[in-house]
Structures are given as C-alpha cells and as structure tokens.
Simulated scan of single mutants.
Amino acid sequence: MTHNKPLSASALLAAKKRAVFRFVGLQLVLAFFLSVGIFVIFDGLHAYSFLAGALASVLPSLYMAWRVFGHAGTRAAKDVVRSFYRGEAGKLVLTALLLMAVFIFIKPLSAGALFAGFGIAILSHWLSPLLLKH
C-alpha cells in the first residue's frame, strides 16, 4: 500500500511547469505532423500556410509559458501575477506581429490554410486540461 504525500509548493510548481512546456511542445509536434499530412494530401502552399498559422498561435503561447514559468524558485504572489499579465500582453502583441509578418512576407499564401492552422492551434488548448491534470 502506497501513501500519496502532498507535493510541496515548489514541487507542484515544477510539475505544472513541466506539464505546460510539454503541452506547448505537443502543439508544435501536432502542427508539424498536420502540415506534413496537408503537404501529402494537398500541396506545399497549403502545408506551409497551415504551419505558419499554427506557429503564429503556438510561439506566443511558448512566450507566455516562459514569462510565467521561466523563473527558478518561488516568488511572491504579486510577482507571479505581474509575470502572468506581462506574459499575456506580450502574447497578444506577439500574435499580432507574427500574423502581420506572415501576411507581409510569405507569398504566395493560402489564407484559408493559415487560419485553419491558427484555429486548430487555438482549439488544441481545449485539450490542455486533459494533459495538464497529471
């Protein structure tokens, strides 16, 4: 018979940090494999447009995770909240900049595939409770 000991605050934070970064990594892998599938079924234009859209969502999420969890050790609650708000603001700005850069610099571009990749990356966040609860 095993007894489950409650995790310390630092161990719980470390577990959450690993889970969040693992989820963002899973999003990157999913985006890549879906892009390969799109390339096989359709063509390169739709594949790289899809990947660009997915990355415009996932890379800002990675930035947000880094802002919130990128610090070692425990911090005051005020600092954690400040990191969260800065991370969220940065995520929104980075998302806008990435989408703008995609539309300006990637030619030709399939807008439908781009928004499909962006949307699927956003919808994949609905899976996070299943993956982050462990």
Rank of each mutant, 00 (worst) to 15 (best):
V20D: 04
Q27V: 00
L59N: 01
L98T: 07
R67V: 08
F84L: 13
G119F: 09
A121D: 06
A96L: 15
S49R: 03
I120W: 08
A65E: 03
S8Y: 12
A56P: 01
A9G: 14
H71L: 14
L131K: 05
L131G: 05
G70H: 02
F42H: 09
H134I: 01
R82P: 08
A31C: 05
D79L: 14
I104K: 12
L123H: 08
V81G: 01
T2E: 15
S110V: 04
V29D: 01
A72R: 13
L109A: 01
P60Q: 06
G90M: 07
V102K: 10
S83Q: 09
A14D: 12
I38C: 09
G37Y: 04
A9F: 14
H46Y: 08
R67K: 13
R18K: 13
L123C: 09
R75D: 04
V58T: 06
A116M: 12
A96I: 15
I38R: 05
V102W: 06
L98A: 14
Y63L: 14
A121F: 00
K5T: 06
L13E: 08
R22L: 12
I106R: 04
L123W: 13
R82V: 14
V20P: 01
G73N: 09
V93R: 04
H46W: 08
V80A: 06
L45Y: 04
V80Q: 03
I41F: 10
V93A: 12
L28S: 06
A54R: 01
L62P: 05
R75G: 03
F23P: 00
K5C: 01
F105M: 02
R82K: 14
G25S: 06
H3V: 13
M1E: 10
S83I: 06
Y63S: 11
F32I: 12
I104E: 12
L92Y: 10
A113D: 05
R18V: 04
L62T: 06
S128G: 07
S83M: 06
L94E: 11
G112S: 03
L127D: 05
S124A: 15
V58W: 01
F115W: 13
L130P: 02
S8I: 10
S10A: 13
I120E: 07
W126E: 10
G73Q: 10
R86C: 12
S83K: 02
M100C: 12
I106M: 08
S8P: 14
P60L: 07
H71R: 15
T74A: 08
A47E: 09
A14F: 06
L99A: 09
G44F: 09
F103W: 05
V36G: 02
L109D: 00
A19K: 09
V20S: 08
F118H: 08
A113L: 04
K133I: 03
Y85M: 15
M64R: 11
P129V: 15
S8T: 15
P108E: 02
Q27P: 00
L94T: 10
L51T: 01
S49L: 11
L99G: 15
I104P: 08
G90S: 07
L99Q: 11
G44Q: 04
